[in-house]
Design a binder for these strands. Structure first.
Lengths: 325, 325
DNA sequence: TTGAAAGCGCTAACAG
DNA sequence: CTGTTAGCGCTTTCAA
């Protein structure tokens, strides 16, 4: 059925070893022979069997990636950036979703390891419970934590400085004259939720006012309802991410509350829809392409064996000011 | 280094053949032996090498998927649904992005075939130019077109009836009293853009008013600018998708045009942000989970060899009425 | 129901 | 620079 490297070698009049070397672009093959092999391959429409190559060479040119939810546009953008760069480097991406469930995540990691991925990029869904999966993975292949991280896990990580981002938001609101603030965030089960909460608490000091749910628009809507029912609105609402902020904006608009006149609202991430909100949302932009670049740089160094020392890289996010504040 | 099936067989006191049969759950193994093998595997912490299994069995339990842009929340949701169902069936997803470029798409398909995926799910980015890639793939493995399709390609397809969706929008706007309509869509380079445009033209009949760009929020903003400059606004704007609609809404809001009082706006897809728009967007909901279910059902039939006859499956989308109309 | 043996297609030693 | 040879770890005949 299929054309094998033996057929190519025979046609080119060389051994399979020479054919293999020529096809994989190794040096140490006479130019004339290399050309003959390449020509033969083309004529026969040879398609190398990468499965066989993987078995022998013990490398699959495939990177596994586990994300909490691909449907989250922030993660989707990250996945897209990573995929593009991998593809440019002739690698493929095996993608898995954890659905924010550490057990699922654990199984996904196992499945990826069974498939012998060369390395793993993981957005760990839980600050603590993702540790086991990460450890089993790290025992076998280079691992990189992206965006989120596991408490006390001594592996590499690339992401942004969430605390600094929140700090910028708080300063901006304060400069705009906001005296009373509230933070609408997520229960700190993942490291970003934790860091943003910590950042908020440190930035505002004592008497912090905090509402915690999850990173969904539904929670944003619910939190806004709570705030409306609770009494006079604060001057500013600092949201844990843009999705929450969009939920808050929607609920406020439905109740004839004017933003930013009655209350200012800010988000985090700068997802594509932040700009389209009414009013357009002030938010903290994460440099996703830089994150992806840096992630693959670090992972590349680990893979090549050049530099295996774990390193954490925190990029600084930038405040994007729009009309909501 | 690694524990192999030989070690497991030795420990269980059986041959590798029996071990293999026991581990893969085949029948025809005495229960006592099966238990011994499974116990040995557990004790040794055996991890099967699926690469070796794939080489021999010629099946990778991996499905390739090519999408135009994962960052598009509509596609992302589809990918997530597909991935979940595959994982439940012990398969993995090899994901690739075409970036709406048929050449990239062609290369991605080749790369996936080289990796010996068992089947391919493709959202072809171009009505015509995606045909070559699809044909090469179809010559090797079962192929399913998802959402979009290639003109004249006689393979299976699962998606929605775009024309019917647009028809519903037009009827709804007409019932609400809209007399003059305009369609803000995308150049018909992909099949959905084409079908939605066709649907609109057939629904409104002669004298149709059509503005074509691409499926981006930027085009929505630009189109809205054009409409504002052009003179009196129509009664209703039918948008080719939600992203365009959100761009239109944003631009209109910036110019103090009231929706739906001054003009009604409708979208297509029902992405998560449609509901959060101000005002919440009337749109056509695509039943993505049903699409994913149906896609894997059809693909499963093709893979098992039960039923290889190509079939097109058009699910009917439903109109979701919100305040923007 | 079991085991021996033959590869799947390729790469990597090792000699030449 | 090239060829021979020996596997990578598994599944699958085939025969018992």
């Amino acid at each position: 059925m299929g054309v094998t490297i033996h057929d190519v070698a025979a046609r080119a009049g060389v051994s399979v070893a020479t054919a293999s070397r020529a096809l994989s672009g190794q040096r140490g093959v006479r130019a004339a022979n290399r050309d003959k092999v390449l020509a033969a391959a083309r004529e026969l429409d040879y398609e190398p069997n990468v499965v066989a190559a993987s078995l022998r060479s013990r490398t699959t040119h495939t990177i596994g990636m586990v994300v909490p939810r691909i449907a989250n546009p922030f993660f989707a953008t990250l996945v897209e950036s990573i995929e593009k760069r991998l593809h440019d480097g002739q690698r493929s991406l095996l993608l898995a979703n954890s659905h924010y469930d550490p057990d699922v995540e654990q199984r996904q990691v196992r499945a990826l390891l069974d498939r012998r991925v060369d390395a793993l990029i993981m957005i760990p869904c839980h600050r603590e419970h993702s540790g086991a999966a990460l450890a089993t993975a790290a025992a076998r292949v280079p691992v990189l934590q992206l965006d989120l991280r596991v408490d006390g896990f001594a592996g590499s990580w690339v992401g942004v400085d969430h605390e600094a981002g929140i700090w910028q938001v708080v300063r901006h609101l304060t400069e705009r004259g906001a005296r009373s603030l509230v933070f609408v965030g997520a229960e700190p089960t993942d490291s970003a939720a934790q860091a943003r909460l910590d950042g908020y608490r440190r930035a505002v000091g004592d008497g912090d006012d905090v509402l915690l749910g999850d990173f969904s628009k539904e929670w944003g809507q619910q939190a806004a309802k709570l705030l409306l029912r609770r009494g006079p609105l604060p001057d500013g609402i600092v949201c844990g991410n843009d999705t929450i902020a969009l939920g808050v904006l929607g609920e406020l608009a439905g109740n004839q509350v004017r933003v930013p006149d009655d209350v200012r609202v800010a988000g985090f991430d700068d997802i594509p829809y932040a700009e389209l909100a009414q009013p357009p949302l002030t938010t903290v932009r994460q440099p996703q392409h830089h994150i992806a670049d840096e992630a693959l740089r670090v992972l590349g160094a680990h893979l090549s064996g050049e530099d295996r020392t774990p390193r954490g890289t925190a990029l600084t996010p930038t405040l994007t000011i729009r009309s909501s504040t």
